[in-house]
Design a protein around this nucleic acid. Sequence first.
DNA 1: GTCTATATTCTGATAGAC
DNA 2: GTCTATCAGAATATAGAC
Lengths: 172, 172
Amino acid sequence: MADTASTRDRLLDAFEQVLIAHGSRAATLDAVAAAAGVSKGGLLYHFKNKAALEAGQHARLRALGEADIAAMRAAPEGAAEYYLAESVSSGGALDRALIASARLAEDAGEQDTVLDDLRAAWYDVLLAELGDPALAHVIQLIGDGMYYNAVAGSRDEGALEHAREILSRLRG
Amino acid sequence: MADTASTRDRLLDAFEQVLIAHGSRAATLDAVAAAAGVSKGGLLYHFKNKAALEAGQHARLRALGEADIAAMRAAPEGAAEYYLAESVSSGGALDRALIASARLAEDAGEQDTVLDDLRAAWYDVLLAELGDPALAHVIQLIGDGMYYNAVAGSRDEGALEHAREILSRLRG
DNA sequence: GTCTATATTCTGATAGAC
DNA sequence: GTCTATCAGAATATAGAC
């Protein structure tokens, strides 16, 4: 029901899109309102100031991230496989929210802990499955690396296959 | 000779520092000039506009990066060890330049290729030493992951030790 | 080379009409 | 709920004094 998305949700979508495509400097109230097809006044009805818009973005990431962690715990292929596969940016809602919040986090001095919290939760699940702190840590770093490359827009073909191959060597 | 650094260099130092500490949104001409201890007019004598200041930052990274690639080729401990050790943010000149340029790159749509160029060069050196595309690729992803955490401002204790341990398992 | 003063445009935010 | 009009302050940049 993309057509029936609330204006509030469309504003958050637009904020994400501008953050991802053009960075935080470009994500002004004017630009976000225009991308969402509303006026600046319309935006400010839903989010009383820019801090509220940023908080809305972080809250969206938190909800998506917590759902993902539950899915990772339940993944039949195992948490490590699941984690690596999802770290390849697929343009999904979680990817987009992660990139957008990461860009905001660079400007604001540690105002929202969602990124740190999610990272810690993913690590816990990896460690519970693998039972090896060094391996769990390195799997997370590989995921971060794939995520970094996706954000930078670099084509990084074969990353997932290569990561899977190395993972199997380490487990075998 | 930090005391005898030229005003131009002090301005680039200040730009880096503000970018790293507070992000690109905070790195205004006023803030950079103040951090360097000069007036805005003084800054604009050395860099005629903001784009020139950003170009100066990217040029500084390119010079440091090319020197690093030469050092990596010559490293007695091997390129992979050298690469992982330097990927841990140590506050060195290269680290700082890398983080600063990465923050600028998010705002500007691929105007300077220095980050992509350096990444490709590092991969070439890793592959030449390791002779294994999957392993070279994964080592670079681990470095990217450590670098991503530095850009994001997270602390990530034990990353280097864990990466070294996994590397030795893979080589052994 | 560096500063002050100023012009211009952008940004966040408010008030009130519809 | 959404829009337009408007404002204060910030940001980039220029001109010219020293």
